[in-house]
Write a protein that binds this DNA or RNA. Structure first.
Length: 306
DNA sequence: AGTTGTCAAGCTAGT
DNA sequence: ACTAGCTTGACAACT
């Protein structure tokens, strides 16, 4: 019993990108047409100020896991951006990183669907690598260790999963170390299941971030517990704990649509089912920190009564 | 001030 | 061949 308590207490719970209660956004951007260096500076400054506020809010509420928005540096990987944001904001980024480390917080990032490492078109691969470089350089400039991860999906299928997986593996192997040390892949809900991700892991060693909701949509009959056990094996010590994305089906939406607010009973069941396994949870639920706070309460309740 | 069309990027399924 | 949806907010142009 003591061991269970210790393990579940290690668990960090968080939410992605947006805080709905403090009245600022850390993903303010602009139209490409209105690009200028001064606008760039203004937006980044605004985004970093807000990120600090969000992290402070999180800390005072016990939320120790957060996904930083890819928009925090707008157009960072676009050819139009020649602005040296790393250098210009290095002190500020370092400071935020220091705050994160001092308070034992965890960070992830999630570039969007345009990052296709297994694309057939070399230009798309090149752009994808640029985008990954931006994410990794941001985390490096913040001086965060390798437990801060950048998660992507395996990518496209082009009606030929076997060769698309082979292309992923080949392209992964050519990535620079700065990306490799942070990149993790996530099982998706339509194409690449956990089983597919494991195939890739065996060839590359890339850790697998487990998405509970996606697994419920697409799986090979592994239970959630079995699946998490499999994923944990793909993370080594320097990677930190397994990251798990958690969401639930929206009752009024199409299959795959995320729920508006957490179903507390289902979440409690999930925690009990996986009790004893060590991981951090990112709640991909639309009301953001509100559900994260509820999840935290449920976690604490389970700790109390076990 | 409020409303609404549109936004860097790609793939996929559906028309 | 073409477009909406992904997932969604928020910019920016228009009333």
């Amino acid at each position: 019993m003591f061991i269970y308590k210790k393990l579940i207490d290690n668990m960090k719970i968080g939410y992605p990108c947006i805080n709905k209660s403090i009245g600022c956004t850390s993903n303010s951007t602009f139209r490409l047409k209105s690009y200028s260096e001064s606008l760039m500076i203004e937006k980044i400054q605004n985004n970093l100020n807000c990120l600090k506020k969000i992290l402070e809010f999180n800390l005072s509420n016990g939320i120790l896991f957060f996904r930083i928005s890819s928009d925090i540096i707008p157009f960072a990987s676009h050819p139009i951006c020649t602005f040296d944001w790393k250098n210009y904001f290095s002190n500020e980024l370092k400071q935020i990183g220091e705050f994160i480390k001092q308070n034992n917080m965890r960070i992830s990032m999630h570039p969007d669907q345009f990052v296709i490492l297994n694309a057939k078109n070399q230009e798309i691969i090149d752009k994808s690598i640029k985008e990954l470089m931006y994410h990794c350089e941001l985390l490096d400039t913040m001086e965060l260790d390798e437990t801060a991860k950048v998660q992507i999906h395996v990518g496209a299928e082009y009606g030929d999963k076997k060769n698309s997986i082979i292309r992923f593996i080949q392209n992964y192997q050519m990535l620079p170390p700065i990306i490799k040390k942070r990149l993790v892949i996530e099982n998706d809900d339509i194409k690449y299941s956990l089983k597919d991700c494991i195939k890739i892991n065996l060839e590359t060693g890339v850790p697998i971030l487990f998405d509970v909701f996606h697994h419920n949509c697409l799986n090979n009959n592994e239970t959630i517990k079995e699946a998490i056990e499999l994923c944990i094996k793909t993370w080594v010590k320097k990677d930190g704990l397994l990251m798990v994305d958690y969401s639930q089906q929206s009752p009024d939406g199409k299959k795959g649509k995320h729920i508006e607010s957490i179903n507390q009973l289902d979440f409690e069941k999930f925690l009990i089912e996986t009790r004893g396994l060590d991981f951090d949870i990112m709640l991909e639920i639309k009301d953001k920190e509100k559900s994260a706070l509820q999840a935290l309460k449920i976690k604490n309740k389970i700790n109390l009564y076990q």
